[in-house]
Design a protein around this nucleic acid. Sequence first.
DNA 1: GTTGAAAGACCTAGTGA
DNA 2: TCACTAGGTCTTTCAAC
Lengths: 154, 154
Amino acid sequence: MTNELDPTDIEILKLLQQDATLTNKEISFKLHKSIATIHERIKRLKEQGYILRTVSILNRKKINKSLIAFSQVLLNDHAADTLAAFEREVSKFPEVMECFQMTGTFDFILRIATSDMDAYHDFYRNKLATLPNITTVQSFFVLSETKSDTAYPL
Amino acid sequence: MTNELDPTDIEILKLLQQDATLTNKEISFKLHKSIATIHERIKRLKEQGYILRTVSILNRKKINKSLIAFSQVLLNDHAADTLAAFEREVSKFPEVMECFQMTGTFDFILRIATSDMDAYHDFYRNKLATLPNITTVQSFFVLSETKSDTAYPL
DNA sequence: GTTGAAAGACCTAGTGA
DNA sequence: TCACTAGGTCTTTCAAC
């Protein structure tokens, strides 16, 4: 079986990125295909790793995660071991939802979710700033969410 | 019924943030509750807006979105109308997955998904840079993903 | 690759405890 | 909150095209 996507696969992925509670039946109706075809396609898309996982997205304001920060971190040593150690340790903090190594004037960008500025301060002081080899941390805070999507353009 | 979360609700949300394909039966087994209880809880969590939606997360490298950029945008005018107009227009671009208004030395941060640097360049030149009132755009590119989670800590 | 059919699993609402 | 019930829906498989 081929490992490339045809237009039906693309449409299925578009739909599931927006709403993964759609049943095979509903998708088959939208795409004018049989239920078995849709079932087979989705099974293959999961097996071949196109679909990584299916998750519920929560309303962060209702679960007391009102403050989102993006923190840019610069290290004072760029040996592979140092970078790997930072990645390993920072990933353990539950407040850190994302960690990317970046091009440019800093090394990493972190997305940090906390309840408020006090909680962020606590995280910064007692967790992030205790990691070795950090030169600077520059943080920016989300004032408002204009667009917040997990779907890639297809 | 109250609008606060008890420990069972928290556990359900934790599970569904990681894997929303779990059946009520599986969740009831993990949490040592009846299926009816789990069903009732999840229904309520959706109705009360704790669970916003359920989506499939795709493998961006397999769907030709290898390049992720974070772009910091500074505007030359901060009237409410200007901000709103920028938000409205930038949200229309499918490459823009996220747009947040931020505290600090710039106004917005955008997460942009494209296939490669050529595609990013095209987006920048023909879409983003054509919007009015932009003073500067500073972009950083993801070198590697250390952690990429949609789940909030609970 | 696609289809329809069929069996089994699951969802959902309701009852009574 | 639970156990149980029952109807309806969905998933999953498979022989056949």
